[in-house]
Structure formats: structure tokens, C-alpha cells
Design a protein around this nucleic acid. Structure first.
Lengths: 236, 236
DNA sequence: TTGATTTTCTGACACAGTGTCAGAAAATGC
DNA sequence: GCATTTTCTGACACTGTGTCAGAAAATCAA
């Protein structure tokens, strides 16, 4: 089962080769510049062969987005296993989210493209499903931390707030902020020159709003962030 | 000056006619389906004539996004003039942001498309500038409310938090949440079936985190939201 | 009204990219 | 070594773009 004929193996490798060729084109020249022609040229196969792997260029973008989504799941899992009390573990996950966009800004870009209906709809459903699965896995990791917090008494959730709903807020805050960071031209003009630091501080305030102990007022969370950074940065 | 020849006037009107034709195509069939051909057919002019108005279809999308951005500025201004204490005015603005995406989901869609570098770059700089200006105007309206809050002593901002930075958080939270609402397939599966209500609650928690008086614990903000809804809904 | 002048509009054209498929080429198996 | 299967290719038919020479319409002056 694990032994594939050399030919099959070559084909599998080529899929990665195609993605590796497509990636810098999108990153350097934008999605518009990506064409099957360009990719075929780069990998030195004919266009027909590329079509044996991917039904259209949208599917290539989705495949790239999926690689990114899988990477994020990995990073979240590592972060969630940070040794510490629940709120610090939560900060560790937020740190992972931050590092994901910093380390892999192109993956973040692919996700943005994928998010357009017009792109998503052209690709086969199965690919979409894979990304969806990663999203759910990330959610599970983070809600896991929230549940642990509740179990340990660090956090008391209001009746109408499930762990998923709390995490939705963090997800919205971070993805929204990083999205703005990449796309809004207004930020420097209004004095937002370190969006990552601002996100950290807002995350802390939001969690303070839920009284997730220890709160900012009782514990220096910046210091803790430094510790998290120190222990996780080598793992990403 | 105000008197244009009938011909010039007709041309101006046609610009709007083109946008009106493009809008439902994008909304109903997605950005991919938008072509100069289709538009020309709908407005009953030749493709060449459309090109006299817009240099490419990207510019049409941007023009649509700009209309939306201008609408949002209007709504924010109306909301910010809500009669009440600062925190309620802030909620009124958040309500305006919510209503904007509910009333004009297509404008929100155009903004998402505009946010892709590959689309934005193809259109003339001047159009981008118009959207940028609207963004700044929205920011000014909202920071105005924050400054009033500080002036009235309802809010004490930490040293490192400017009004712009606080607003950035709200902007990220709301735009992120509405973006997810439109694009993530995972939400229903994880029990997020009323994202708008969740955003409201997170906004309140975030402002609680900054101790913007009155906080959720001292005043029922849901009740206030109902009042805001009642008095603003007819204005939008 | 007329014709000269300017403005506006059109559709044919050259081009770029897509997705397909018959048949060439290569790999595999007997 | 040859038959069978798999893989690969590039020509083809299409869709859509952006341009521009010249047709058509509007404007204006006498």
C-alpha cells in the first residue's frame, strides 16, 4: 500500500512542483498574473499535463490555501500545548495566529482569494471541504482551551455565550485586523503602525471583558507574551 | 457652471446606468460572470462606449465599492449624532455598521473584491483615493465619539491607546466578523447562527475591557440597543 | 437650412488565455 | 519484443479583452 510505483510517485511529486511554481507568481505579480501558461512554462510540462492535476487555476489557489490552513492547524496545536494556566495558553494561540500571518503572508493572501465566492465556486467541492475541515480543527483546538479554562474555574461564561461564540469573537478580531493590515491604505495615516501589538492589546481587553483570570489589571500580560514568544518562536 | 448641455448630462446619467447594470450581474452570478460584453448588452450600448466611461471591469467594481463606502459614511454620521451618552452613541455607530452589511450586502461584497490587490491595482489611482477618503471619514466620525467620551470622563484611555487604536479594534472585530459571516462555511456547524448578536455582545465586552462607562454590569446594553434600533432604523 | 467642425459611438481586429481531446510517446506487463 | 495501458502534448474552438479607424450624431455659425 505504501509502495507506489516510481511513476505514480513522480506524479505526486509534480503536484507539489506545480504549487511551488504557482506560489511565487501569485505572491510577486498577483492573482491576475497566474495562468496555466505561466505555470506550465515554469514546471516545463505542457498545459495539458497541468490540467491532469488541477481542473482550473482556481483549484490551484485553493490547494495553496489548503496547505496554509493545514499549517495553521499545526501551529495552533503546538501553541495550545503551551505549559501554563488557561489564559496564557489562550495568549499562546493568539501568538500562533499572529506568527502565522507574519511567517506566511502568502498563505493569508491565498485564503483571501479563496474567500471570494467567484473563485471558490469554480473549484471542486472536495478541495473546499479540506479547508473547511482545517477551520473546524482550529476551532476545536481553541474551544478546547476555553473549556479547560471553564473547568479550572479561570473563566465563568455567561449563559448565552458558548466557547464557540467566545472564540468567534477572537477569530473575527484577529482575522479582521490582519485583513485590514494587508489591505487598508489608511492605517499609517491614522497612526496604526504596529497592528500586531494593537491586536494583542485588544485580545487582552476582550478577555478582560469576560473576566478571564488573570486579567490585565492583576497580571502583566505583556511579560507573559514575551515568555510565550521566547518558548514558541523556535517551534514555528 | 451647473448647467450642462443635454448631451453631457446624458453621458453622466449613463455612468450610473452602467453601474446599475453591473451590480446585479456581480450579485447574482459573481465577479467572474461580469464582462464588458454583458454590461454592454444590458445597457444597450457597444463595448467601446463602456470603455469611454471605465478603463476596465475592475474600475467598475471599484466605482461600486466607492458608492458603498460613501453610503457607510452617511450612516455613520447619522448614527454618531444619536442623542445620548457617549457609550450609547458608540453602540449606535456599531449598529450602523451592522445595518450597513445587512441592508447592502452587495456593497460589502464589492469591498471584498476591491481588497484584492490584483483587482485594485488595475484601476486608476484616483478611484482608489476616493475609497480611501471614505475610510478616513468613517474613522474620524468614530474617533470623534471616543474623544467625546474621554472629554466627558466616561472613558479613561491607557497611555498607549489613542482613539484611533481603540477604533481599529472595533473596526477589525466588526469587519472580521461580517467577513466570516459571508465567507466561512463552518459557522452554522459550530453553533454560530446569529453572528450579528454575537458581534454586539463582543463589542460590549471589548468596551467593558476598557471600562467605558456605563459598563455591561451596571447598565443593560441590550435594552439600549433596542432603543437605538428603534430610533435609527427609519433613517437608514 | 446648410455645411463645417467637434464629439461620440461602434464593431472589427489583434491578442491573451481557457479547457478539451485525438493521437503521439512513454511506461508497464507478459 | 510486442501488446496494453497510462501519460503527455499541442492544435483547436472558445470566450473575453482593450484599441482604434472611421461612421454617426451633435453642435454651431452664418
Amino acid at each position: 500500500m505504501g509502495t507506489l510505483s516510481p511513476k505514480k510517485l513522480e506524479i505526486q511529486k509534480r503536484e507539489q512542483k506545480i504549487l511551488d511554481a504557482a506560489r511565487p507568481i501569485v505572491v510577486r505579480e498577483g492573482y491576475q498574473a497566474l495562468s496555466m501558461e505561466r505555470i506550465a512554462e515554469a514546471v516545463e510540462y505542457s498545459r495539458g499535463t497541468i490540467y491532469n492535476h488541477f481542473s482550473c487555476k482556481e483549484e490551484i489557489i485553493i490547494a495553496l490555501a489548503q496547505k496554509g490552513a493545514a499549517k495553521r492547524v499545526d501551529m495552533f496545536r503546538i501553541a495550545a500545548s503551551y505549559q501554563g494556566i488557561s489564559r496564557f495558553r489562550m495568549l499562546a494561540v493568539c501568538y500562533a495566529a499572529e506568527r502565522f500571518v507574519i511567517n506566511y503572508p502568502d498563505y493569508f493572501l491565498f485564503e483571501q482569494i479563496f474567500n471570494l465566492d467567484s473563485v471558490r465556486e469554480k473549484a471542486p467541492h472536495q478541495r473546499q471541504q479540506l479547508i473547511h475541515t482545517c477551520e473546524i480543527q482550529c476551532m476545536e483546538v481553541v474551544t478546547g482551551v476555553v473549556r479547560d479554562a471553564v473547568a479550572h474555574g479561570d473563566l465563568i461564561l455567561p449563559d448565552d455565550v458558548t466557547p464557540e461564540r467566545l472564540v468567534f469573537g477572537l477569530w473575527a478580531l484577529t482575522s479582521g485586523a490582519y485583513g485590514l493590515t494587508f489591505t487598508s491604505q489608511s492605517l499609517p495615516q491614522i497612526g496604526i503602525d504596529d497592528p500586531y501589538a494593537i491586536v494583542r492589546s485588544h485580545v487582552c481587553r476582550l478577555l478582560d471583558g469576560y473576566n478571564w483570570n488573570p486579567t490585565s489589571s492583576t497580571h502583566c500580560l505583556n511579560e507573559e507574551f514575551a515568555k510565550i514568544e521566547n518558548s514558541l518562536s523556535k517551534l514555528f
